[in-house]
Structure formats: C-alpha cells, structure tokens
Nucleic acid binder design. Structure first.
Lengths: 204, 204, 204, 204
DNA sequence: AATGAATGAGGGTTCATTCAT
DNA sequence: TATGAATGAACCCTCATTCAT
C-alpha cells in the first residue's frame, strides 16, 4: 500500500525511535520485537526497514544519539571561569537534571551495553569514557589546587556517577522530593565525596 | 536415553543454576535460550524441565536465593556492640566484599528485575527493601546520636548502595586496586556521605 | 523471504483451511501439527499465523463455517407448503446429500467437539442444537396432525440423525449404492422411525 | 526406587488401563500423554513401560479387550430359540444396556480407530465386522422368514447400530429417561426400521 | 516394579527480515 | 513509504521412550 495520507518519512522514523526507546527501556532490547515497536508506532513491522537497516542499528542509533546529545549539552554549560567546587556543583546539577528528564535514555544507556555488537559497543564505550572524564578532570583539578581532599579521583568520579545514576532507581515524579531538592542533596553528597575543603558545605 | 552413568539430579540442577547465572549476567535473561543453558551444562534442553518448571522460575530462584543468602550472610556480621560509624564501616566492607566475589548475582539482581513476572517481582522487591533498610537504619541511628551529620538518611543510604554497586561496572580482578583497597576507599566515601563527625576520617 | 510472486492472502488462507480440514478429518486435531498443515499447503508453518491466530481458532473456524453453511443451505430448501411426511423426506434427502459430499466436515463436526475450548464449544453446541431442532420440529408437527405415530419426537429425531450420520462410516464413492439410492433407503427408514401413517411406505 | 508397599503389578496395570481409558475417551488418544496417564494412576511415566510396551499398544489392548468382551457377552445371551423379532429385541436391549454402562469404551471404540496403526487396525476391524454381522444376520433371517419386511438388511443393520450408538451423545445419567425406558424406545425403533410385520408394534 | 533423570524429536508459536505489491 | 505475506530459524516447552538406580 502507498504512504498513508499525512505521514512523512522523518515523522515515522522519529516515532519509531520513541517507541523503541520506551520499549527497550521497559522490557530490554532482547525482549522487544520489531512487531512490538511497529505496533506502538502504528505501522507494520516491515515499514521499520524503510528507516533503519535492522534492529541492532536502531539500538545503536538511540545510544549514540543519546551520548552525543548528552556531551553536546554539557558543552553548553559554561564552567570555564569557575573553581573546581563550583564546577562539580555544575556537573552534578547538570547530570541530575538532564537524566531525570530522560530516564529511559539513561536506563538503556547503562543496561543495553551488552546488547550492542562489537563496533557499536566500542563507539559507545568511547563516548562514555569521554563523559566520565568530565567529573574525573574536575576532581583532579580540585585535588591539584587543594579545593578537594581526596586520594582517588578516578574511583571517586565513578562513585559519584553511580550514586547519581542510582537516583533513577527510586525517583518518581510524584515523590516527596522535587528535582531541585534532589539536585541540592546530591550536590552536597558529591562535595563530601570529593572532600571539599570549605566552610559552607551543606548538611546533607 | 536414560540417565548417564554417574549423573545425579542435585548435581545437574546446581550446574544448571550456575550456567543460567553466568549467561543471564552476560547476555540478559531474554537473550538467553534454554538450549544455551542446557548446552553450557552439558545436557539437552528438555532435561532442564526435570529440575525447574520453566525459564521464569529459574530466574526467580536465582534471585531469591541470592537475596536470601545475602541477608543471611549479613545476619552473621555482628554489629551489635558497635557505634554507627563502625556499623557503617562493617556494612560497606561486607557489601563490597560480598558482591565483588559474586558479580554475576549482583548484576542480575539489579538488571533482571524487569524480567520477573508479577509474583516473583513482589517477592524480590520485598527482600530488597529489607536489605536497603540496613544502611538506612544505620544512618538514622547515627543521625540520632550525632555520629553522623546528614539531612536525608533514606536518600543517602540509596546513594551509598548505588555507589557501591557501581564498583561492579569497572572492577576487574586484574585491576590496579585490590579488594581490601577498594573496601577502604568506599568505607571512607561512605563515611563522608554520612557526614561522619570525627577527627580521623581517612583522606579518600 | 517475502511473498511469492502470484500468491495472495485469501487464496493461501483458503488452501490452509482445506489442508487443515483434510488432515483433521483423517488424523484428528491433536495428531495434526501446524507444520503438517503448512506442508500440505506449500508454505512454512509460520505463514499460517498470518491468516489464523492459532491452531484452535483454525478448528473453530472450520466448525463454525460448516455449521453456518449447513444451516444456511437448509434455509434454501422450501418445505413451507409440504406436509410433515414430505418435510421429513426433504430433510433426510438434504442431510444425506449435503453430508455425503462433505464427509470431512461431518466427521470433524462430530469428532472434534472435545478439541474445542470453552467459548468455541458453546458456540458450536448452540448451532448444533439449532440444526437438531429441525427434524424434531417436523416430527412434533407430524405427531400433532397425526401424520406420524410416535411417542418420543426428541429421541427419534436424534436417532434419525445418528442413523444418517452413520452412513459416513461405511459409505464409499465406489460402493454398490449410489447417493440417490442411499437417500431413498434412509428416507424410508426415517419414515418408519417416525411411524409414518400411510399406505405407500416403501419397503426398505 | 523399589516397589511401593502394597502395590502389585497386576493392580497397577489395571489402574493404568482405567486411567488410559478415561483420558482417551475424554481427550482423544493423541491428546493424552503417557505422563497424564501415569499421573492419574499415581505413578511415574516410566513405570507404564513395565506393563505395556508402548502407548500404541495400550490403546490396542483397550480396544481389543473391549471388542472381545462385547462379543463374549453377546455369546451369553441365549437367542437360539427365539424368532427374528425377539432376537432383534434381545440384541437392541443388549447393546443399549451394555454400552450405556461402558460409554468410554464405546466412545474410543468408534473414535480412535484412526489412531491405530496397521496391524492393530485390521485386528479391530475384524472384530467389529463380527459384531456388526449379528444384527445383519438377524435381519436377514427375519427377511427370509417374512418376520421383517425390508430391502437392505446390511444398510439397515448399520443404521440401527448407528442410531443406538447415537444414544451416547445425548444420554445423561440424570436425564429424563431411565435405561429401561430407552431400551424400550429403541427396541420399537429398531422394529420399525426392520419393517417388523406384527400387530403389537409399540407406538414409539 | 518403580523412580527420576535423561534423550532427541517434535510440538505450537514468534522472530527478524525480505520483498512483490 | 507502507503493507501484508512469506521465510527459515529459533523460541519455550512437552513428548514417548530409555535405563541406571
């Protein structure tokens, strides 16, 4: 059959991306069928292949776009003129805010690494290392200039990211805490983890 | 064909459990076939059903046994006479040590919740809440007796667990740090997150 | 692979129906595999599911269509202006002729009731009762107007139908008797069973 | 494991026969698994093979025993000194009474012919022809001595048997009619089908 | 005579993917 | 671009049967 009236290729592709993201996040890549993605989008399974070469590539694209968007978004945050403590605060605020609004992307970004085949996996790992370097660099800079007191910037950076990502496990829109409140709590936690040397460390 | 000479039911069941654990951890529940589990165990797929009623139940059993063993192991740790700071240290040391030796159990325990069907899911969630209550209780006790200075024991407890679990993402047996070193680092991190009020907080 | 050149959905569905009917009649529903139906039709097993949701539904459809077609065909027979004796003759002639040309439908219609699951079973039983009401009504009318002399119209109606259906057990296209001859024999038998009160009852 | 206390081979074999008969009658040979038969009997599937060489043979034995018992039971009925009309009455009464008490045997005897493999099938067909010869012989004798007026004894015999077997389709223990009443009705019907020439033909 | 553990085949069904339309 | 029909492989699971115990 011909194209449905009013449908356009780019639109369908985008809707497919969204359906796939939602389903992958909920059930996992392996448990989601192309038919399920198609059904959620309102097309037949065959139509997917007009937009994506195969299932694996659909996942790859979602993850690459997520990581690249994440990195690009961080580029927008101006921390040039800040000291390490303020930089760490900026990073935590950015990470929490960014991910609490994109829980599905965060989820598959961490859970579906194992579903990626070789080339895509390296690609993603590379982008991820790039992102993980951000807090590590901040911690290292802070250690160097005595803003922070910590022995293991690399381990601490991973611990901070893990703690932040853990939010998504228990966070609910309808919960007791608002996003800004959560940001503040985790900013204080990160400061403590970094051994921030200053008077005004908030009481977590 | 009948039973192989020298084979025994309990042995096969245990080997199946181990195969399933390894494969589920590596590829995810949905991506692992019963044939793959059987092959890794050295039996035919049909033989699995002499030991487990179905695939779902195999996962369920792995997760329940893991959580129950974990809770039982914690029961063995005597923290009765310790103050909150020492209790937190005990918990962190226990958690790191326990899980670094069981990375697969930890992995599926967090990743395959979504693969569990309703009843099994509630069962596991219940056990998990029980475990998460341990650090929260320690933090609350420490907050009450001014061992710790922190505003949100519940959030902080989750953050500590998340940070600890994050170890499994980067930890490698062949890595730079030994398990005791990692324990020490995270004990210090947890102490900081808890706002431990003492002179001798190690420099992380 | 995609659709074969020249194949069409409706055609395949019809061929599947015919294959299933033949195989169900010969070997019984439970003994026939979807693969066997597919092979007889010249497609792969998976292709069946483009046309029927599952095996059970394939049987259901065959039985429902058979019963509805049978009832519709009887509607075509005009017995409005006939007396009970002629009506009974019409019915017997109709039933024999209809079923001797559709032995497979008759067979599964009686043999595979037990293979139907609950909803389908009620549906079929309802249609069957509707058909069995036809001869019973004729017998009751004939009893009322003294065309027939019989005590138990309901039992006799069932006995007539059973006798008629029994033909399919021994009938062979190549046998001694032609269909019209068989019709005549059973018309006479039915008349006798009904206690038809007339001079000209044929000598069976 | 060894034999259960109190169990005996012959007992188990008989219980297996009964389980198989019940299940075959309810669900059909192909739909019944050896495990189901074993479970209903209270043993494991493997135990069946101590008593029957395989599934097919279990069916065969049930059918052969049924047919042989049926024929033997008919041998007990003394019709030596009766005329054809009384013989037909005896036969009908015997058949109805025998089968209404053994509905499962009757059912599989007619339904599972197709499940028999070659040799068993011939064996059963042979026994069945022997039984069907009984009413045919009566009808032929009655035709010869002018007790009956009918053209086709063979067809009529089959029609009578079919009508009788049809009882099992609608008969219920709790129904309106008692077994003796049903016997009387069908005796009268059979007499009519045979064209019995006598004053006292009951009004059906 | 029975169990329980195993096999190898096959069950119904779903899958990612292809392609004529 | 989309559909719908198809493939061939794979899915989970059950089967009849075997045999060491």
């Amino acid at each position: 059959m011909a194209r449905k009236v009013g449908s356009s290729g780019a639109e369908t592709a985008q809707k497919l991306r969204e359906s796939a993201l939602t389903l992958f996040a909920k059930d996992g890549y392996a448990a989601v069928s192309m038919r399920a993605i198609a059904a959620k989008t309102g097309v037949q399974a065959g139509a997917i292949y007009n937009h994506f070469p195969n299932k694996q590539d659909l996942l790859r694209e979602l993850m690459v776009v997520h990581m690249e968007t994440l990195l690009a978004a961080w580029e927008e945050v101006d921390i040039q003129d800040l000291g390490p403590a303020a930089q760490l605060e900026s990073f935590v605020r950015f990470h929490v805010r960014y991910h609490l609004r994109r829980p599905k992307e965060l989820f598959i970004s961490y859970m579906e690494l194992r579903s990626l085949e070789d080339t895509a996996l390296s690609e993603i790992k590379c982008l991820r290392r790039e992102y993980e370097a951000i807090p590590r660099a901040i911690l290292e800079r802070g250690k160097a200039d005595w803003s922070f007191s910590l022995a293991e910037p690399a381990v601490t950076a991973m611990a901070i990211i893990a703690a932040l990502n853990g939010i998504s496990i228990w966070y609910k829109d309808s919960g007791r805490l608002t996003v800004p409140e959560i940001e503040d709590i985790y900013i204080a936690l990160a400061a403590r983890m970094a051994g921030q040397i200053k008077k005004g460390v908030a009481n977590v």
